[in-house]
Amino acid sequence: MTGTPRFYIVQEDILPEALIKTVQAKELLLSGEVTTVAQAVERVGLSRSAFYKYKDKVFPLQNWGRGRTVVISLLLEHRSGVLSGVLSKIAAVHGNVVTINQDFPRQGVAGVTVTVETSQLTTGVEQLLVLLREQPGVRQAVFLGEGE
């Protein structure tokens, strides 16, 4: 798949078992009931490779985009005002930036990872990604997963 990722809401009973078990394993980890991925996947009966394949791609609907921190990976052109524009877009939809990590620029672009607290977000995470991708100087904006 190329381009902007698309998202769907589907009923659980039509999902492959590996996707459901991935969500169950993530919930065990988030609750603190288990402390390692190995423990989580063993408990739900899933291979570690399947967990790592799907962990950043499947989320329960109630957890998608509200009231948590999310991690967004960006590829930005290395020029004045690009990062500032990204931060302004996040602020415009009431996202609260918790952390910013920027790699050293190479060949005119820099990788940036931003953790955003979403409890006050006036839009969903998917729409935030669309807004960021439309920002001049943003070459890529990808949802990496939930923050800690």
Rank of each mutant, 00 (worst) to 15 (best):
V58L: 02
R6D: 11
L121P: 05
E12K: 13
Q11D: 15
G32H: 13
T113Y: 04
Q11F: 07
G81Q: 04
E42R: 13
H94F: 14
S88D: 12
Y8W: 11
I14D: 02
W64A: 15
L46S: 02
G45P: 02
G85C: 00
V10H: 04
T2E: 15
T115P: 01
E117W: 11
V58W: 01
L87W: 02
V58M: 04
S84A: 15
A91T: 03
V112S: 08
Y54Q: 01
K21S: 03
G81K: 00
P136N: 03
V98R: 11
F104D: 12
G3V: 07
A40V: 03
T4L: 11
E117Q: 15
F51C: 06
G85D: 04
E134H: 03
G3W: 10
R6N: 12
N63C: 02
L129G: 10
L132G: 00
E12V: 13
L28Y: 09
V23W: 03
G111V: 01
D13M: 07
D13Y: 10
K26P: 00
R68S: 14
T4S: 14
I100C: 05
R6Q: 14
T118M: 14
S84L: 03
T36R: 13
V58A: 05
P5Y: 10
V109F: 14
L29F: 11
I72K: 08
L74M: 10
S80H: 12
T22E: 08
T69R: 15
Q39I: 06
G45C: 05
L46Y: 00
E77C: 06
T22S: 07
T123M: 14
Y8Q: 12
V97F: 04
E117Y: 14
E27M: 14
S80C: 01
P16K: 14
V86K: 00
E117G: 03
E27W: 05
N63Y: 06
I90E: 01
D56F: 00
E17Y: 03
N96I: 08
P136M: 05
E126N: 13
R48A: 08
T123H: 07
Y52R: 03
L15G: 03
G81I: 02
L87A: 14
E126F: 12
P60V: 06
N96M: 03
Q62I: 12
M1S: 15
E42V: 00
A50R: 08
L76F: 09
Q11Y: 07
N101E: 15
G111T: 09
A25L: 09
L61A: 15
V93K: 02
L61Q: 07
V97S: 06
V71N: 09
T99D: 11
R106P: 00
S73D: 15
P60W: 08
V37T: 13
T122D: 11
A91D: 05
